[in-house]
């Protein structure tokens, strides 16, 4: 489904990502792991067209997406839940969700998709008319996920859903993601610092260190790896 090869990107003269390569198959949860500053968010921003890569390719279902803008990438079905949620805090929850259906294809299905995400997150229906900034952190993350789902993703990118949230809320959100993969056949790219949680729900994973892919393997292999244990799990 998604195949990234030799991806290099950075900000101005500073290069952050060095020859990143990985792939995501249909109906798979792939986790990208790494500590702060490893380049995870830069990678998400590059794949979704917010940063132009200096080299490499991002192939999505046979189409080259590198060097296209974020709108184009979104239209193709890659939707992200950005790091730190990035809600429009002064707009209501409902308006935030409406913004998820900004392009034409998704707008036509908005009313149906809204009903679906309300089933996933019933809290949001209660809070529909409240300004998004007045919600708790967990509820805001739900809005961010719901906004992305309304964009009808084929590949959903979750950028650090655990950031600043209580563990049980993270579990809820990862549960929703797993169920979506199982029932609706979408794929998920889970970008996380919290390796235990990420490996618990992912099929495969890649470890990024200093902008390079340091390790890759199935979730079990990575969990058993000595380097991962020492550097990330503290055992």
């Amino acid at each position: 489904m998604l195949k990234v090869e030799g991806l290099r990107a950075g900000y101005g003269a500073v290069n952050i990502l060095w020859d990143i390569a990985f792939h995501v198959n249909d109906g798979e949860i792939v986790s990208i792991l790494g500590s702060n500053g490893a380049g995870k968010t830069t990678m998400v921003r590059t794949i979704t067209g917010m940063i132009r890569p200096s080299a490499g390719s991002v192939n999505f279902n046979g189409e080259e997406l590198a060097r296209h803008n974020s709108r184009y990438v979104l239209d193709k079905g890659i939707v992200q839940v950005p790091e730190g949620r990035q809600l429009f805090t002064e707009m209501t929850v409902l308006e935030n969700l409406e913004m998820g259906a900004f392009n034409k294809q998704t707008r036509e299905h908005f009313a149906d998709n809204l009903r679906v995400v309300y089933q996933w997150f019933p809290k949001l229906e209660e809070r529909a008319r409240q300004a998004a900034g007045t919600l708790s952190g967990g509820e805001q993350q739900m809005v961010a996920v719901a906004r992305a789902l309304i964009g009808m993703p084929k590949l959903l990118i979750l950028d650090e859903p655990s950031l600043g949230l209580a563990p049980n809320i993270v579990d809820d959100i990862l549960n929703v993601a797993s169920t979506l993969v199982r029932n609706d056949g979408i794929s998920v790219l889970l970008v996380e610092q919290d390796i235990t949680k990420a490996l618990a729900c992912a099929d495969r994973g890649y470890v990024i260190e200093n902008g390079h892919i340091a390790l890759e393997g199935t979730a079990e292999e990575l969990a058993a790896n000595e380097h991962v244990k020492k550097a990330y799990l503290g055992i």
């Binding site: 974020s70 979104l74 990035q86 429009f88 900004f102």
Partner: peptide, 14 residues
């Protein structure tokens, strides 16, 4: 959305 958060706007394809 641009007034509220330009990066978030770009993230949802604006």
């Amino acid at each position: 959305t641009i007034r509220e958060d330009e990066d978030a706007a770009a993230a949802i394809g604006i």
